[in-house]
């Protein structure tokens, strides 16, 4: 047999370029929402970071704008900073994203950590003062994000003070926050497009959101606030789903998403950083190959092993739920 002659001889017209530029398309609604809420400077930040990132990759790939992956990274990075950031802030992040987190690891496909998040983590920690106050939409007074308010006074009043319109503001993005994070509506439109095109799978975002809801409920935080304020939507649909840094195995994706969601809420609750999503996803990124290995799932024909395993997993899950509920109620009582 000469395998050079083997098929398949036909294929989809899908390419890496197409995949990446479709993600760029999917981010356009959120960028548009950012322009509406924060003005054109926000738009400038997003696209200057994107173009700069693509340029940074030129020495490595000798292509501009390249396969689009650097452009996506830049856009995501630009969207995750406050709208009043100095123009150089995201560029510093982009440098770390593209050079350190991506190319030094071997470029697209070989990076362990989501480049956009790695860059964001660096500027978040190095220039913390720029992340302490977030401009509110429509040039209102800059303020803390609803999440940070919660952290400041634990009475956690944003929703009860603002009622239903508060919820709508949360959902549409009319709240203080990073440029591209605030409008859940715009992000979900983009995500729906990606899902329809088959570029993202339901498992990671689904498990992510579910875990956020469950963990929030267990900690007594309003789940709606957890989801729609801060970077959860952006993180669940655009960051955690980054192909290179998330597991490929089906069950691995479920556990990965769930881990991201649970860690996000835990970090927010127990630490002073507002970057719960960033650090949660970066932590899970490091486990992504392990999860590929541990949770590959069962192959066709392994139904006997599958049955036994499902029983064990089921029993473990039920036991865990009972323990958590029990400790939760005993805490409540004490």
């Amino acid at each position: 047999m000469n395998l050079k002659l083997s098929g398949p001889h036909i294929g989809t017209d899908d390419t890496i370029e197409k995949t990446m530029w479709n993600v760029v398309l999917a981010l356009i609604p959120a960028a548009a929402a950012a322009a509406v809420f924060f003005g054109y400077y926000a738009l400038f930040l997003i696209f200057s970071t994107a173009v700069f990132s693509a340029l940074l990759e030129y020495p490595f790939t000798k292509k501009f704008p390249g396969d689009g992956s650097a452009f996506v990274t830049g856009m995501l990075l630009g969207m995750s900073i406050p709208a009043d950031s100095p123009f150089w802030l995201p560029l510093v992040g982009a440098f770390f994203s593209i050079i350190v987190a991506k190319q030094l690891f071997g470029g697209l496909g070989n990076n362990i950590f989501n480049p956009a998040l790695a860059g964001r983590a660096v500027i978040r920690i190095s220039f913390a003062s720029h992340f302490s106050s977030w401009p509110a939409p429509f040039d209102a007074v800059a303020g803390a994000t609803p999440l940070a308010q919660r952290a400041a006074d634990s009475s956690y009043t944003y929703l009860s003070e603002n009622g239903l319109s508060g919820l709508w503001n949360l959902f549409s993005g009319n709240i203080p926050g990073a440029i591209g994070e605030t409008s859940a509506l715009a992000l979900l439109i983009g995500a729906a497009f990606l899902y329809y095109k088959g570029y993202i799978d339901w498992r990671i975002p689904g498990a992510f959101i579910t875990a956020v809801i469950i963990t929030s409920a267990l900690l007594g935080v309003n789940p709606a606030l957890s989801i729609f304020s801060g970077a959860v939507i952006l993180g669940a649909f655009f960051m955690a789903t980054d192909m290179v840094t998330s597991p490929a195995a089906k069950e691995g994706r479920l556990f990965f998403g769930a881990g991201c969601g649970a860690l996000t809420v835990l970090i927010r609750y127990f630490s002073s950083y507002s970057g719960g999503v960033t650090f949660a996803i970066l932590t899970m990124n490091s486990l992504s190959y392990l999860f590929d290995h541990l949770f590959e799932g069962f192959h066709y024909g392994q139904y006997q092993i599958r049955k036994i395993n499902y029983k064990i997993i089921g029993a473990a899950v039920i036991a865990a739920v009972i323990i958590v509920l029990f400790s939760y109620f005993s805490l409540l009582i004490s």
Binding site: T19, S69, G109, G198, D201, V244, S246, A248, R253
Partner: peptide, 12 residues
């Protein structure tokens, strides 16, 4: 034969 971007399309 470009680098695998771990998109998981083949897995699905």
């Amino acid at each position: 034969s470009r680098v695998c971007i771990r998109c998981a399309k083949c897995v699905d």
